[in-house]
């Protein structure tokens, strides 16, 4: 049985003045898939994400989520389709408590009692129960990442985009993050941008390599890492 395509782009390009950050990207994600996006710094991964989520309006091309054309839609409208987003720069409500952060995510879609239950459950799921009342701004980097991941989980999305969810984490923290991601994958399709190759190898079925704004190659991690061009692109990078 062929799985449904939940997200696709057609010739998506994004230019900042003379800088071509995305160059005619044709991408497709199937339902239930866990895709990793890799590529050297400045390859255009985050820009691609921002075009998908409406934070940037693409210069050219189209974005389709399920069968809906969402090119240039507002971020809240994209999120409204059931898309959960974690940005590369941690985006949390620093002055508010862990609980309030997660409640705000849950309450967008759930009624008051169910939002309360979902908040309690999610706070435990990301292991922040002991510090649920602390302002997120006072937490360590890894914990803030989990708060943001918790916000994504609490909204029960069916499509999840995570930009470097394990950045700056220790090995132990990364393993826990991978657990959460696998759990999300039971009910949602995911695209994850990550530089940590061990992490990518452990998670992804298919890997998409970005280079200079375009897709260089797609395939299994083994196939991709055996590719001579990919090796060349990463030459000098310690990954």
């Amino acid at each position: 049985m062929r799985r449904e395509t939940v997200l696709q782009t057609h010739d998506l390009s994004m230019r900042f003045g003379g800088v071509v950050a995305n160059d005619r990207v044709n991408f497709a994600l199937k339902a239930g898939e866990l895709r990793c996006l890799i590529g050297p710094n400045g390859a255009g991964k985050s820009t691609f994400f921002k075009c998908l989520t409406g934070q940037l309006k693409p210069s050219e091309g189209r974005v389709l989520i399920r069968d809906l054309d969402t090119t240039g839609a507002e971020p809240h409208a994209v999120a409204g389709l059931g898309v959960g987003i974690k940005t590369q720069v941690p985006n949390v409500f620093d002055a508010l408590s862990v609980e309030e952060n997660i409640w705000l995510a849950a309450r967008r879609w759930l009624d008051a009692p169910r939002a309360k239950a979902a908040t309690a459950e999610t706070v435990e799921r990301v292991r922040l129960g002991d510090i649920r009342r602390r302002p997120v701004g006072t937490l360590a980097h890894g914990q803030r990442q989990w708060v943001e991941l918790g916000m994504v989980v609490a909204a029960r999305p069916w499509l999840v985009l995570l930009d470097e969810p394990a950045a700056g984490m220790t090995e132990e923290e990364t393993a826990f993050t991978a657990d959460i991601i696998r759990e999300i994958n039971r009910t949602a399709s995911l695209i994850i941008v990550e530089h940590d190759m061990a992490f990518v190898r452990a998670l992804a079925d298919i890997v998409t390599v970005f280079h200079r704004g375009a897709i260089l190659i797609e395939g299994s991690m083994d196939a991709v890492s055996a590719d001579p061009t990919v090796r060349e692109v990463y030459l000098g990078h310690k990954h």
Partner: peptide, 16 residues
């Protein structure tokens, strides 16, 4: 209050 704290995040959660 959430929008005051971080408008981008509020939008990404689906609030206009």
């Amino acid at each position: 209050v959430a929008i005051r704290e971080n408008e981008t995040r509020a939008e990404l959660l689906g609030y206009d």
